[in-house]
Amino acid sequence: MSARIEWRVATLAEFRNETATARTLLLDVPGWPGHLAGQHVDVRLTDADGYSTQRSYSLGAPADGERVELTVQKVPGGEVSEYLTDVYSIGDPIELRGPVGGWFVWHPSRTAPVLLVAGGSGIVPLMAMVRARRQARSRAPFRLIYSVRSPADQYFSSELRRSAVDDSGLDVTTVYTRSAPPGATREPGRIGGADLERYGWPPQFEPTCFVCGPTGFVEKVANTLVGLGHDPRRIRTERFGPTGG
């Protein structure tokens, strides 16, 4: 890795709408050095007057050559996210630097059980881990618990449904907090100890736990995991603050 990280110009190659307010951007980044699942990038926008602003976004997939994937949740009034989800078009440039972050990462060489707990758009770096596992044909046992408000708020829905069937050793559970689809056995409600116990791993399995989501969600899940007997040293967290706009 070079000593100094530099801003690169990325261009939008393709996009996919995940929900009514979230868009996945597929960006071509000449010279992209590759990255690990869980790492993120900083994105910088500069207007004609020279005013610039930047945000961090998690990479949602393993690198595909010089192509990287971000998923942006539109935050009402968020100057960067509104631009990236509504205005930013195929062929347009943005500045991007990364990959950065070496703590909230999963290495495909690891074989220990993994528990992934996502709150809302916190699914993005965890999806990168699910995809990296599949790409590496890893046999590490994975369980993903994905907490979302309603089915309409779910990212990567069809791929996660397929992965839950096709990726051997991956269990996917969606926990709905406001409204569940017809036929769901669990009443809608916030994630709790019973969910983490039922759909996660027993602490005796010594799983590595990755928790990503809004700050309040991450605090609650991490504390609950510790309360269930998980070693805090095996819990890795990533929180969104108020500046995700």
């Binding site: 070079s2 990280i5 961090s56 950065v100 070496g102 703590w103 991450v218 603050g241």
Partner: peptide
């Protein structure tokens, strides 16, 4: 209050200064 991020958000800014993460 809970209006904070965590240290992961410093990875980019600190990578400008240091070669290690």
């Amino acid at each position: 209050t809970q209006d904070y991020q965590d240290g992961n958000a410093l990875a980019g800014p600190l990578a400008e200064l240091f070669a290690v993460d």
